[in-house]
Amino acid sequence: MSRPIVRVQHVHKYFTRGSEQIDVLMDLSLDVEEGDFVSLMGPSGSGKTTLLNLIAGLDTPSEGEIWVGDDLVSSMTEEELARWRTRNIGFIFQFYHLLPVLTAYENVEMPLLLLPLSASARRRQVLTALELVGLSDRLWHRPGQLSGGQQQRVGIARAIVTDPTLIVADEPTGDLDAKSADEILRLLNELQRSLRKTIIMVTHDPHAAERSRRIVRLEKGRLVEDDAAFASLGGAS
């Protein structure tokens, strides 16, 4: 087995509304191995997206630690997290969230603008990423000129263009028809297999979850099922 790339240790996350404390995650621990493809499942309000946000460094836990690689994400400042995310996290959104004024090429290039890369290196990486998602012929199309599936592929290219440690996806197929969803999931599988990318995906869709190697179920902020053996039964193969 590979070493864990993500270590969530006794994480507790709560929000306060007035004097009321709302517990979203309670004493949750989870390890994700390098190169794994994990689906986070559970009913609404179970804390899947909150956990994903914590792992991606978009939020910090109220208690507990989160490590990604050798970085203790849970103790970073907002400024440090922003820098860290650029290099280490690729985020895929349910609604793609591409910048409408930019072309597919420019959208994918966005995260690279924050890195000390030459224009030619940027260009090389963008073209590679777009080629990997099969959109080499749509470089100069704006999001409005692309289908939902194509937009999501641009979103995936944007997520992988910096060659991040971890790809997180929040219901990446939630806004797509069955055919497009299937293509996106196949693409994620391909990325995980060929590039050895670690992927954590939040999904409600059992069919989508079946494409991953491991399914983790949450309920009321607690981990209730970790189907780590799923891979051995044929998941994500």
Partner: peptide, 16 residues
């Protein structure tokens, strides 16, 4: 606001 949030997710800091 959503777009700004996306930029932050991509790694844009507050100053940018």
């Amino acid at each position: 606001r959503k777009e700004i949030a996306v930029l932050k997710v991509l790694g844009f800091n507050a100053r940018q």
